[in-house]
Simulated scan of single mutants.
Amino acid sequence: MRVVIADDSTLLRQGIVLLLEEQGIEVAAAVGDGETLLRAVAEHRPDVCVIDVRMPPTFVDEGLRAALVIRHRWPDVGVLVLSQYVEEKYAIDLIGDDTRGVGYLLKDRVSNVEEFLDALNRIFLGDTVLDPEVVKQVLVRSRRRDPLASLSPREKDVLSAMAEGLSNSGIAAQLVIGPAAVEKHISNIFMKFGLHPEDGENRRVLAVLRYLGA
Rank of each mutant, 00 (worst) to 15 (best):
S167R: 00
N121G: 05
R141W: 04
R154K: 10
F124Q: 07
N121I: 01
D127T: 06
K136I: 05
R143F: 13
L151Y: 02
A163E: 00
V138S: 01
E155D: 10
L120K: 00
V140I: 07
V138H: 02
M162V: 02
S152Q: 13
G170D: 06
V129P: 04
S152F: 05
R144P: 00
E115L: 15
F116D: 02
S169N: 08
R143W: 15
S169L: 12
D131W: 13
V113A: 14
L130T: 10
G170L: 08
V138D: 01
F124N: 05
K156Y: 12
L117W: 10
E115F: 14
D118S: 07
S150T: 13
A163K: 03
E114C: 10
N112P: 05
K136Y: 06
S152I: 07
L139C: 10
L125D: 08
K136G: 11
S142A: 15
D118R: 15
E133F: 03
R143C: 07
P153D: 09
L159V: 07
E133N: 09
N168L: 03
E115N: 09
L130A: 13
N112A: 10
D131R: 07
P153M: 15
G165M: 01
L125C: 04
R154A: 05
A149P: 05
L148V: 13
P153C: 12
L148Q: 15
E133I: 06
E114N: 10
R145S: 13
A149T: 14
V129C: 12
S167I: 00
P147A: 11
D146N: 15
E133R: 09
R143N: 14
A119F: 05
A163P: 00
S142I: 13
E133T: 10
